[in-house]
């Protein structure tokens, strides 16, 4: 069962096609890993799923992207509403200049939620889901910048979870972190997939193999193949995929 589906999707920066004819489905309650060498278009693709590319000048698309059957690029879907339903966590931890509490509460506040108890409950729940609660519960009013890099990234995940999205996009969320923080994030992703559809971009093939259910391989703007992670890593059908995962290029 697919949460989001993409059909014959093209993306352009000016005249240059960054994505060519991509068709795939984002399964619910699973982790979909996007892999491929740098510049293959996987991040562009990820950011097309919640229209973060709208802010890029001269960016344009062709094709169809739907969330629960609704075209997300149509007037029926306001980007602000879309982004509340399709959350995103970035490569580098990017907390706001606010307290730990206010970082998590931000998404709720901008939705107009003012009730203290509601905010407090939501913040606690999100921090628990992001496995950060025990570390920060006594210092919620401290600046988010007082946290370590790994904690900051989990805070960013908690912040994304607080608005209760349906799909969670992760753009190399562990690439800037040390191994211990990385493994905590990976565990977290495993926990979260029971409730969300997760799409993760990663450079790290082992990571993709460890945590994802489905894997899509991108190369030069095309999606070469997609399938069960175990099959892609053991028995890819396209020779280019095999070359990549065996380390012959990239």
């Amino acid at each position: 069962m697919a949460r989001m589906s993409v059909e014959k999707f093209f993306a352009y920066y000016g005249e240059n096609a960054a994505l060519k004819n991509v068709t795939l489905e984002v399964p619910d309650q699973q982790v979909l890993a996007l892999i491929g060498p740098s510049g293959c278009g996987k991040t562009t693709f990820l950011r097309s799923l919640n229209r973060m590319n709208d802010f890029v000048k001269e960016f344009s698309i062709e094709g169809l992207v739907t969330l629960d059957g609704v075209d997300i690029y149509s007037p029926d879907m306001h980007p602000v509403v879309l982004r509340r339903r399709v959350g995103m966590v970035f490569q580098k931890p990017n907390p706001f200049h606010k307290s730990i509490f206010e970082n998590v509460a931000y998404g709720l506040r901008i939705q107009g939620i003012r009730a203290k108890s509601v905010l407090a409950d939501n913040v606690e729940e999100s921090l628990r889901s992001a496995a950060l609660w025990d570390e920060v519960k006594d210092r919620l009013n401290d600046s988010a910048f007082s946290l370590s890099g790994g904690q900051q990234q989990r805070l960013c995940i908690a912040r994304a979870l607080a608005v209760e999205p349906e799909v969670l996009l992760l753009d190399e969320p562990a690439s800037a972190l040390d191994p211990i923080s990385t493994s905590r994030i990976e565990e977290l992703i495993q926990d979260l997939k029971t409730q969300y559809a997760i799409v993760i971009v990663t450079h790290n093939m082992q990571q993709a193999a460890r945590i994802s259910d489905q894997t899509a391989f991108f190369l030069l703007g095309e999606m070469v193949e997609m399938g069960e992670t175990s099959r892609i890593f053991t028995n890819p059908s396209d020779p280019r995929t095999e070359d990549y995962i065996t380390g012959r290029f990239g």
């Binding site: 509340r84 901008i110 960013c156």
Partner: peptide
């Protein structure tokens, strides 16, 4: 720019991003 994007990704409008972040 990442901080600004984080705000948008949470479904904030431009005004909310500019004023609150």
């Amino acid at each position: 720019h990442e901080m600004v994007e984080a705000s948008y990704a949470l479904g904030a409008t431009k005004a909310e991003t500019v004023f609150f972040v």
